[in-house]
Design a protein around this nucleic acid. Sequence first.
DNA 1: GTCTATACTCTGATAGAC
DNA 2: GTCTATCAGAGTATAGAC
Lengths: 204, 204
Amino acid sequence: MPPTARPRSRIQQRNRELILDAALEVFSLHGFRGATLDQIAEVAGLSKPNLLYYFPSKEAVHKVLLTGLLDSWLDPLREMDPEGDPLAEILAYVRRKLEMSRDFPRESRLFAGEILQGAPRMREAIEGDLRDLVAGKSRILSRWMEEGRIARVDPVHLIFSIWALTQHYADFEVQVRAVLGPEHDPFAEAGSFLETLFTRLLAP
Amino acid sequence: MPPTARPRSRIQQRNRELILDAALEVFSLHGFRGATLDQIAEVAGLSKPNLLYYFPSKEAVHKVLLTGLLDSWLDPLREMDPEGDPLAEILAYVRRKLEMSRDFPRESRLFAGEILQGAPRMREAIEGDLRDLVAGKSRILSRWMEEGRIARVDPVHLIFSIWALTQHYADFEVQVRAVLGPEHDPFAEAGSFLETLFTRLLAP
DNA sequence: GTCTATACTCTGATAGAC
DNA sequence: GTCTATCAGAGTATAGAC
């Protein structure tokens, strides 16, 4: 039993989820300071004092959101299998990451906004978990390169490039859609573009 | 004589520039709503009412900043020469864009924050100038591909990929530095990584 | 042109009835 | 558990002296 899991009634659970979902919506759209408790409460369908019955402060809501986020954000990278086929593993990672941009754009934007502002509420996590995971996975990539199974390239910047290219379609979605026009499906096109890009970059 | 250029004394010019520079600093770090006139005035070394003597409102300061931004932001793309060597032109564009990330990270983050929040103050510009410029340049890229001078790939997504990869180093700089550690020079490494990437992607 | 003082609004958070 | 009422502080903007 995790230490933070206090027993909660069904309605408590439900309201907490309503609040967190509303907060994700509002925070991702306006940033931490730009978001107001009034907005979050309205989206959640609760009164402001009632919201503050479930969370002690605006900061607390934001923190819960961010804490859960980084973990699920790194899952696709964790799944990259050292025993699998190198190029297939990398392309699968790209695909999973692009699917997250498509299916969870609010989460992506919340994360992006936090980093953009200097990660005031995520610094330790980034310098800890994130850094360690990248270090571990880049060793795997380096080994694949030494074995000649994929082409040589800086492994850490390779990971950066996957992040940059996939998250761009969530974080800059309005720009992407404005440039492409309404007829296009950005994520479908991105899928085949990125497959081509990483295949050409890494083919041995 | 441009219609908006009213005559200004030297000290007026100077103070306007002080304010705009301070506003760029604060807006890029905290977003529009997160920034306060107090902060901007303090960074500019002026009093708040004095700031409001030069600009009628917070909104007005932000608008002036954004208006000037998009133009200079697109300049590197405008410079891509249809008559030049295709790969060299594209790599030069990548280099210029990366230099902008290195030398003007505040501008990059201001722009990113605006798009991230749905571009409420830039929509028309993005759907106009930006869209038109990309359309024009992607025709050039398509021609180069048809002539077999670079490899085939979706030209618009190629431009997106250049934006994503170069701006990542400004917008996510804290993350990049946290992962790389203090010993690294992110922009130098990115320069050679991106040259490799686009060369392998586009070599005929 | 620049400052002090202040009006007025918005926002995060609390008190206390039900 | 949820609501109405309200407080305290921050924030944008203005008035008016100098």
